[in-house]
C-alpha cells in the first residue's frame, strides 16, 4: 500500500516545475490511445458506415445530444470537437486505472491520470477559461461583462464565486470518483495477493468493483462533458 509517486522535482533547476512522471506517462498513453482509436475509426470513411465508423458516428451523435440539450445547434456545433475530445480522453483515462495498476519498485506507475487532482483541475480550469473566451467571442465584451450583473446587480460577488466553484467542483468531482475507485481497487488487489483465502474473498468484490468503476468512469466522462456544455451555454447563449 505504500506506493510512492515517481516524482521529478525542480526540473531544470526551476523551483516550481515538479513532475509526477507516472502522470506524464499515463497522460501520454491516454492521449495516444484516444488519438489512435479516433484516427483508426475515421480512416476509410464511407457514405454507408461500416464497422468502427458506426461506433464513432454513434459517439458523435451522443456528444451532439449532450450539446443539443444545452444550446441550439448553430452555436453549439463548434464545441463538438471539444466535447468529443474531452469525453473520449476522460473516458480512456478513467478506464486505464480500472484495467490494471502497475507498481515498479515502490513507485506506482500505471494508474488513471484522472486520479490526480492537479490534472482534473487543469482540465476544469481549461474548460472554464474556454467558456469565458467563447463568451467574449460570441456576445462581445460588453454583453459578457453585463452578464455578471444579471439578473440582479448585487449577485455580482456570487457570480464571481460561482466561476471558481464551478472550476473546483468540475475538477474535484472527477478526481474524487476516480481516485476513490482506485483506492478500493488497490485495497482489494492487496487483499487478493495477501493469502489464498484473501484471494477468494477479494476476487468477486474486485470483479464487481471493476465493473462499477467502468460504469463510474463512463458516467464521470459524461458528466464532465455535460457540465462543460452547461457552463459553455451559460456564457454563449443569450436566453439563459
Amino acid at each position: 500500500m505504500n506506493h510512492e509517486a515517481p516524482l521529478a522535482l525542480d526540473v531544470l533547476g526551476i523551483p516550481w516545475l515538479d513532475f509526477n512522471l507516472s502522470n506524464v506517462l499515463m497522460m501520454f498513453i491516454a492521449s495516444a490511445i484516444v488519438f489512435i482509436f479516433a484516427v483508426m475509426a475515421s480512416r476509410n470513411l464511407q457514405r454507408k458506415p461500416r464497422g468502427w465508423q458506426n461506433f464513432i458516428e454513434w459517439l458523435i451523435d451522443f456528444i451532439k445530444g449532450i450539446i443539443g440539450s444545452n444550446m441550439d445547434w448553430k452555436t453549439g456545433r463548434k464545441f463538438l470537437p471539444l466535447g468529443l475530445t474531452l469525453f473520449t480522453y476522460i473516458f480512456v483515462a478513467n478506464m486505464l486505472g480500472v484495467i490494471t495498476m502497475a507498481v515498479f519498485g515502490h513507485e506506482l506507475w500505471w494508474k488513471s491520470p484522472t486520479s490526480d487532482a492537479g490534472i482534473t483541475l487543469t482540465l476544469a480550469t481549461m474548460v472554464v477559461v474556454l467558456t469565458h473566451y467563447y463568451g467574449i467571442k460570441e456576445k462581445g465584451a460588453k454583453e459578457y461583462g453585463k452578464d455578471f450583473f444579471r439578473p440582479l446587480p448585487f449577485l455580482f460577488p456570487f457570480k464571481i464565486i460561482e466561476e471558481f466553484a464551478n472550476t473546483l467542483t468540475l475538477g474535484l468531482r472527477l478526481y474524487g470518483n476516480i481516485y476513490a475507485g482506485e483506492i478500493l481497487l488497490t485495497l482489494l488487489a492487496g487483499l487478493a495477493v495477501s493469502s489464498v483465502g484473501g484471494f477468494f474473498g477479494a476476487a468477486i468484490p474486485l470483479l464487481a468493483w471493476q465493473g462499477f468503476s467502468t460504469f463510474i468512469g463512463f458516467i464521470q466522462a459524461f458528466i464532465f462533458t455535460m457540465l462543460t456544455m452547461v457552463y459553455m451555454s451559460h456564457k454563449v447563449s443569450s436566453d439563459h
Binding site: D18, N23, V24, M27, F28, S31, T85, Y89, I119, L123
Partner: peptide
Amino acid sequence: GLMVGDMLVQLIFF
C-alpha cells in the same frame, strides 16, 4: 502540492 509540471503537461497534451 499540486504538480505544476503535470498540469502544464496535461494542458499541452490536451
